[in-house]
Computed example of a mutant assay.
Amino acid sequence: MKTIFFSTDVDTINEWKSRHDVKDLLEVTNCDALLQVLSTLKEYIIVSDYDSVSHSINKMLASNTLPDKFIVLEKVPEIITGKSLILKGIKAYGNARMLKIHYQQMIETVKGGKIWTYPELTLALAKEAKRSSISDEAEALIEHRLTEKEKEVIYAILEGLTNDAIASELDITQRTVKAHISSIFSKLHVNDRVSLILLLK
């Protein structure tokens, strides 16, 4: 899968190249070049620099022309910006200077068709989608598709609890929590917690 670094800042691209040791890489500096490159590729991940190309990204979002597997990194990530971008279809949002291990986790998550966010952003998204704020349709979906224990687990997720905290609160093992979460994802046709939260909002 081809990785595309999208930034007008050559220093940022060079920093990403040296920090993450990316193979099979293309660099683009403007929207026209990006669209031209995408017309020749079937599989790709775009890693974009929000600090230098936010105008282009926002334009694509507004016109509903955002390519798939689009990642946004920012030197000083903000939860409000991350929430907005994820809700609009960005597949990952994080720190432009993240460690290599986190970069690799992010890439693998997006490659797998899932959404990646850093822990504080995931927690903020979960808190926003608490039980009291989910739609009537989402409440009905939960009622019709999930078992009683799965309902307890999903509402704990919406409170922003970790698997460990859910296990403690419900007096079950972490392994059981993971099994319930896997079943919830399957029944609601989502791949991860962020997708679940977005579904229920």
Rank of each mutant, 00 (worst) to 15 (best):
G89Y: 01
L198K: 06
M60F: 05
S63P: 08
E152C: 07
N95V: 04
I142C: 04
R97T: 12
L200R: 01
N191Y: 10
I197F: 05
K69Y: 06
S168I: 11
L26D: 04
Q36G: 13
S39D: 10
A126H: 13
F185D: 01
K17M: 07
L123R: 12
L99S: 11
I184N: 02
L85V: 03
E15G: 12
E150I: 07
L121N: 02
L73A: 05
C31E: 14
L196C: 08
Q105D: 11
C31L: 15
Q36C: 14
K42Q: 12
T176V: 09
I57F: 05
D21Y: 10
L61V: 06
D51C: 09
I142G: 03
L41S: 06
Y118K: 04
Y118V: 02
T176C: 12
I184R: 03
G112C: 03
L38K: 05
W116R: 03
K17H: 05
L196M: 11
R19M: 05
R193A: 02
Y103H: 09
H144G: 09
K88M: 11
E137T: 14
R19K: 08
D32G: 15
E148K: 14
T29C: 08
W16P: 01
D49R: 00
E128P: 09
E27T: 12
T122P: 01
P77C: 09
V190I: 05
V76Q: 10
T3M: 07
A62D: 12
G160L: 06
I157Q: 02
L87P: 03
E152Q: 10
L141R: 09
N30E: 13
I197R: 01
K2D: 13
T12H: 07
V194Q: 11
M60Y: 01
A129G: 14
E74L: 06
V53F: 05
K91Q: 13
L196F: 07
I80W: 14
A179M: 12
K111Q: 07
K130F: 13
F6H: 00
G89A: 04
E74F: 06
V76R: 14
V10H: 10
S63C: 15
T173K: 03
F6I: 03
A165S: 10
K2M: 09
A124I: 08
I57Q: 05
L196D: 05
T117H: 09
I107N: 00
S132G: 14
K127F: 15
S135A: 01
E43C: 04
Q174E: 11
K201W: 04
I46L: 02
L146S: 08
L188Q: 02
T81F: 06
K42M: 09
V72L: 02
L121F: 01
S133D: 12
R193D: 02
